[in-house]
Simulated assay, not measured.
Amino acid sequence: MKEIIDFLLDLSRNNNKEWFNANKRRYQEVLSRWNEFCGELIQAVGQYDPDIALLSVKDCTYRIYRDTRFSADKSPYKTHFGVFLSKGGKKSMHAGYYFHVGTGTGNEYPHCHMIASGNYCFEPRVVKMLREDISFGWEEFKEDVLDVAHPSFKVDMDGALKRVPKDYPADAPYADFMRLKSYSLVTYLDDDFILQPDLVTRVAELFKTVKPFNDYINRAVDFEKD
């Protein structure tokens, strides 16, 4: 992973087409290493989640080229690599497992290294079902889903409503989950974690602890799709 991080650091300092084209061969080498890692991660997670075992690397990875049409930031290239393992692939809108390597220069997306589960931008009907399921079955959700996740995972409150919807008590133990419009657990990593041996194994072990979270969300996603 060191070669990948070093490349991303250099790219962040030289985010232009001239530099990228001059370093295209280096990018291809780094991309090959990344794709190899992603293939191994798919196999590892697929051992306990059969939906993931069906995926290809292409189903789970992203282009390095940024879509700048609606962004004030016109930098042409992403300075991170991400892989999202989810039932049906990255565009299926299912909850899944996300691993992200950035420049390691901060604890904010996209510079950070991170692991996350869940997904963003769920259909309103899915959000409604999840709120109802969590509020009515809070103890089960906490015991069987939240408490089995590795303690480093935290609920991602980014984009949450400022107030609890009026249909739910603001002082309930599940109140924060009623504010969510997206459902994701996240943990941030440092260079030491990324650069130690057996990264695939260690990431897959963390992912395994959040499989119940993904399964819980995907139950609502599948119901809405049907």
Rank of each mutant, 00 (worst) to 15 (best):
Q47N: 13
N214V: 13
P76S: 07
R131T: 00
V30W: 08
F177Q: 02
R33K: 15
Y183I: 08
E123G: 04
I5Y: 12
S71R: 09
S86D: 05
F99V: 13
G102T: 05
E29M: 12
D51F: 15
V83Y: 08
T187F: 02
Y97E: 02
R131W: 01
N14T: 08
N16P: 09
F81E: 10
L180F: 03
V126Q: 03
Q196K: 15
R13E: 11
S12R: 09
R179H: 03
N119D: 10
Q28F: 12
L85H: 01
A172Y: 00
V57P: 01
G104E: 02
F81W: 14
V145W: 06
L8D: 00
Y168N: 00
F20W: 02
Y27K: 03
K24T: 11
L195Y: 14
F37E: 04
A72P: 08
N16T: 11
V155P: 06
V126K: 04
K90G: 03
Y109L: 09
G137H: 12
K142W: 02
P169H: 00
D59V: 04
T103V: 03
N119C: 10
K225W: 03
R125C: 05
S117K: 03
D158W: 11
Y109K: 09
F122R: 09
W19Y: 13
L11T: 02
L189D: 03
C121Y: 13
N14S: 05
L206P: 03
E29W: 08
P151E: 05
Y62T: 07
D176P: 04
L195E: 15
R69S: 05
A116E: 03
G137Y: 05
S184I: 12
S182Y: 07
D10N: 11
G39N: 11
L199G: 06
Y174D: 01
Y62C: 05
F20S: 01
F136Y: 10
T201Y: 09
D59Q: 02
A44Y: 10
A172P: 00
R33F: 14
P110D: 07
G96H: 08
F122K: 10
L41A: 09
L54D: 11
Y183E: 04
D49E: 11
A22Q: 13
F7C: 02
S12A: 08
D158G: 08
N21R: 15
D156Q: 13
W34V: 08
K87M: 15
T79S: 03
K58A: 13
G82A: 15
Q196A: 15
L189K: 07
H111D: 07
K74S: 06
Y27D: 00
N35D: 11
D215S: 09
M129V: 00
T103F: 01
Q28L: 14
T61E: 06
V164L: 00
S184A: 14
K24Y: 15
V200L: 06
D167Y: 02
L185I: 07
D10P: 00
Y183T: 04
E224W: 07
K208E: 15
D167G: 03
K225D: 04
T61K: 11
V148F: 01
K225V: 05
E132Q: 11
I194E: 14
Y65K: 06
D147V: 01
V200H: 04
W34L: 10
D144R: 07
L195K: 12
A170P: 00
C121M: 14
G82E: 10
S71T: 09
F213I: 08
S117W: 02
W19C: 05
K78M: 04
